[in-house]
Write a protein that binds this DNA or RNA. Structure first.
Lengths: 208, 208
DNA sequence: CCATGTGAACAAATTCACAGCA
DNA sequence: TGCTGTGAATTTGTTCACATGG
């Protein structure tokens, strides 16, 4: 039973954001940057940036700042991006197909299969992969060493699909279905209901 | 200049989650529910649920609980979902097309246009709409009363596309491009980088 | 009596501010 | 000198626990 991580999701998510900023700096040829300058350019908090890095044991150079290149590599490694993760996408609807195409040959997150219950969808070619039937899920996860399951099924099918993913042996699940899952505490599970973002924006738009 | 909302994004997002749960209960024919029972069923905090509702001036019935139907309607109204919002999607890539199809004739968030710079994409029919050229953005936003702009362009085009949306007069922006935007403080802007979710999960999967 | 509504207690997250080192 | 690294202060968010009222 993996003890609850010592790192908060907020911190981990910021690491991703920092990494994106650093990659941009690297592309621009910037070699060193101070936390203040980084904060100014990307609208982030310098103090929080330093705290976050400290928590992951990353150090800068006093009086100077951080080495962009080295820091980017360090963050990528700490996020586990130095070796690829293999994913199966469950649900070949609009979002499932979009993700399958996007991650078809991504080097860090690789979609190795796209699965659907609908026999009419099975066999369709999406990006580089072919839609496979749900019955093969167990075999797919085992044989292709799938670590992450991605749910893009309708709300009504979410819980059953989740249970199947767990049974098949995936180590983590990203759920895009708009349904609060009854999730296993020992399997990292993240719910991302895209409609929530639209609703939040709508709320503030209407003068919330 | 709209003063910063008195409601935190966390609270607003929870309202969406509550609404989803209530709609499920309604579909199941449940008429009344206590905060405790709701917490038990969906893994939410009863006290927080009550606090959140109180903040929005919604009351239950002491000794009984909440009327599912009435509460769902109340939350939907407070989120501004009782009247539809009109959106333009900028970028007809994988995600843009998926969202366009998903929201083609949604009753609360309606995608009234899908726009792209690429002349090869212009004219393509996606769901009910046809891809239109970027030059027409201003006209589209004005004539079709677009309130929300959705960015699904590549990172490199994000900032310029954002600026164009603002100039065209949209009231809020949802940015799916993996780039930290320099955003206008008076226009509600939400950054949603989907890769962050994958990276978070990957992190915990690797035993973070 | 029972679940709400809420102030008070607690916990988490962020910012402040400055000592300490390159 | 200038920026990092970090304890202390502050702000924000959540839970507790109970008085209140249908």
């Amino acid at each position: 039973m993996p003890e609850p991580s010592e790192f908060s999701p907020l911190t981990v998510n910021r690491l991703s954001v920092y990494l994106r900023c650093l990659e941009r700096l690297r592309a621009q040829g910037v070699e060193r940057i101070s936390s203040q300058e980084l904060g100014r350019r990307f609208g982030l908090s310098p103090a929080l940036f330093r705290k976050d890095l400290a928590q992951f044991g990353v150090s800068g150079i006093r009086g100077v700042g951080y080495e962009v290149d080295c820091l980017a590599d360090g963050l990528a490694r700490r996020l586990g991006l130095d070796r690829p993760s293999r994913m199966v996408i469950l649900g070949a609807g609009n979002l499932g197909r979009a993700l399958a195409r996007y991650f078809a040959d991504d080097s860090t997150f690789h979609a190795v299969a796209l699965v659907d219950v609908d026999p009419k969808k099975v066999g369709n070619r999406i990006g580089g992969t072919v839609v496979e039937p749900l019955e093969r899920l167990g075999e797919i996860v085992e044989r292709r060493r799938v670590e992450i399951g991605v749910l893009t099924v309708p709300a009504a099918a979410a819980q059953e699909s989740y249970d199947r993913l767990i049974e098949a042996g995936v180590g983590a699940v990203l759920n895009f279905a708009p349904r609060q899952l009854r999730s296993r505490p020992d399997v990292p599970t993240k719910n991302v209901d895209l409609r929530v973002f639209f609703e939040e924006l709508g709320f503030y738009l209407r003068g919330g």
